[in-house]
């Protein structure tokens, strides 16, 4: 028990790692609920890999001597973040445009994109052998080695993302649920969609830099799936998903630290266990009692 309390204290050796993981665990499900509700779960698989590909691309450019942000390790990370954001947001916008047109097979596109992103991540890394170890570290998430200033910047950005998700929850829900009514009410559906996609892109990019693509996929999709059967409105859906994500991250970190296991897979396994328990409990609780929101 004392270790659990110690892990939350500022003087804990892996203080950044604990809080970074937990904050990502709290915030990712807030945007992930829209993946689930818009039935875009596979986006949650492909986009973190695209983000990882963006990181690898940024390092490949450095390997070719194209260093736009010359300097130390911090600048390299900033360049990696830039690559990750550009790749992720760019891909989201293209995917969203194709979804709006409604042409072709959506699942097919996402499958091909995932394969491409994975392949290019490996290829881009192969072009910069000198920085391969560092790149692989970043692709897995480099929360342990993040600087104090970057850590606080990340916390501020995730706080802003969480605030935006709650502040604009009505608009995001309306344009996701019933676009025609949103237009009829005079809302600019395209602008709200763009804002939502930009927030999603930023969350995934920073999240991948922090904890890696595997954990981000886990946080984006699994906590919302576990929360959905218990949700009583959009706010409760978001809050339950966020709590499950944050608690899974903390429990995952505790297990990883005490049992000397890799953090990412432990966190994802715990999130999946929570999902399984939630589904089981949903079957045991009579539906008639839970169908009323009163």
């Amino acid at each position: 028990m004392s270790l659990l309390i110690d892990m939350l204290k500022p003087d804990f050796l892996l203080h950044h790692a604990v809080w970074g993981s937990v904050v990502v665990g709290f915030v990712c499900p807030l945007v992930g609920v829209y993946f689930v509700l818009r039935r875009l779960v596979f986006w949650g698989v492909a986009l973190p890999q695209v983000s990882a590909s963006g990181i690898a691309f940024a390092f490949m450019l450095q390997g070719f001597g194209l260093n736009f942000m010359a300097g130390g390790e911090a600048q390299e990370k900033h360049l990696a973040i830039l690559g990750s954001v550009i790749f992720t947001v760019g891909t989201i916008l293209v995917l969203a445009a194709l979804e709006r047109k409604g042409e072709g097979l959506s699942e097919g596109r996402i499958g091909a994109l995932f394969a491409l992103a994975w392949a290019t991540s490996i290829l881009f890394v192969a072009f910069n052998a000198a920085g391969e170890t560092e790149m692989l570290g970043l692709l897995k998430g480099e929360i342990v080695s993040i600087s104090e200033s970057d850590f606080h910047a990340m916390l501020n950005i995730f706080a802003a993302i969480a605030a935006a998700m709650f502040l604009f929850q009505r608009e995001f829900t309306l344009v996701s649920y019933d676009r025609d009514t949103a237009v009829t009410l005079g809302r600019n559906v395209l602008a709200w969609d763009l804002l939502l996609f930009l927030i999603i892109g930023l969350t995934i990019s920073l999240g991948v830099m922090t904890v890696g693509p595997l954990v981000i996929f886990g946080f984006l999709v699994i906590p919302p799936l576990a929360a959905l059967p218990w949700a009583r409105g959009m706010i409760s859906f978001s809050v339950i998903a966020s709590l499950l994500g944050g608690l899974s991250a903390f429990a995952g970190f505790y297990l990883s630290y005490t049992r000397d296991l890799p953090l990412g897979p432990v966190v994802v396994c715990i999130a999946c266990a929570v999902y399984a328990l939630s589904s089981l409990a949903r079957r045991l609780v009579p539906k008639s009692k839970s169908s009323s929101f009163i």
Partner: peptide, 27 residues
């Protein structure tokens, strides 16, 4: 004031009747 075909609204959303009615005020 628009009343769409009810089948077009996704039942996955955890929205109460009040939540849906309140959307009319989201101008």
């Amino acid at each position: 004031g628009y009343v769409p075909q009810k089948e077009r609204l996704d039942p996955l959303y955890p929205l109460s009747a009040r939540d849906v009615a309140a959307m009319g005020t989201y101008r």
